[in-house]
Amino acid sequence: MSGAEDATTRTPPAADAATPRPRWQVILVRPETVTFLFLIVATIGASWLSPFFADVRYILESFTFYFEFAIVALILTMVIISGEIDLSAASMMALSASLFGVAYQAGLGIPGAMAVSLLSGVLMGAFNGFLVINMKLPSIIVTIGTLTLFRGLAQVIAGDKSIGKFPAWFIGIDYRFVFDVPIPVIVFLIVSLILGIFLGTSAIGRQIYQIGTSPIAARHAGIRVNRIKYGLFIAMGLVSSIAGLLAASRLASVRYDLATGGELQMVLIVMLGGTYIFGGRGTILGTFLAAWLLVVIATGMTVANIPINAQLTVLGLLLIVSIIATNAIHVRTQR
């Protein structure tokens, strides 16, 4: 909420930015490159920590535990590039999944229940968008409020019981394979590819960057800022409900506490991927790599039986260090 002003005041003078840099340096100091290097280091480190880690099947299987957060993080990347944030996604997952469970129990059938869940995602996203865009409230605090609200509603709707007994064809998406690769991994690859191309090459993609860099200039340039931001918030809601459904399939059951604290991991993935917290910069590629980085780090520590105490500490430190690092890189390489 704060500090946005500070960031702009820190921007180096234009003359500095105009100095041409050698190409290798431009590539090397890109945040995604740093993420990629981290990924290699983490993979080597994890293999060293435990002899059981370096097994592609196992890593791919472990990816399915973080897959739901990773796919939400892709859209969150675009939201953050546009200068907003959404911390309510994990709660939207829980509420839409709880609605799915309750609707299925009420006899709606899987397709009907899925429709209810997806619709609820769109509505929740639109509600966030309404508060941020129409009511002109800061997204950061709005989504803290809706984080509590959506999770609370999930608790009211589903109680604290586990809703399950879904038909066999619906459950276990993480254990279906195409060429030995779990389906969620393939879905993540394809969605990353599509979103990467969309954000990198389409007109709307460029406009998202412009909005994040300067909403006022974007408006003057005729970009329909509100419409695009609305679209992003609704996309957040939709992808969260999809993630909720995927979690329901993976776990064969839903409960209100699904993905509790997931917002931290989603933000962590986006930050690790080098997206600039103040908006305007970041890539899908970075987020894609960061998702794997998180999986390697978390899985590596778990399979080495490192106590969760140390894991929490590492993740918290990682978030702070990654923001500091990307912030430093972005301030240095002001285009």
């Binding site: 776990l251 039986n305 969760i308 894991q311």
Partner: peptide
């Protein structure tokens, strides 16, 4: 071994 929270998953 144990997770940080007693959440279902």
């Amino acid at each position: 071994v144990a997770p940080a929270t007693a959440e279902a998953t």
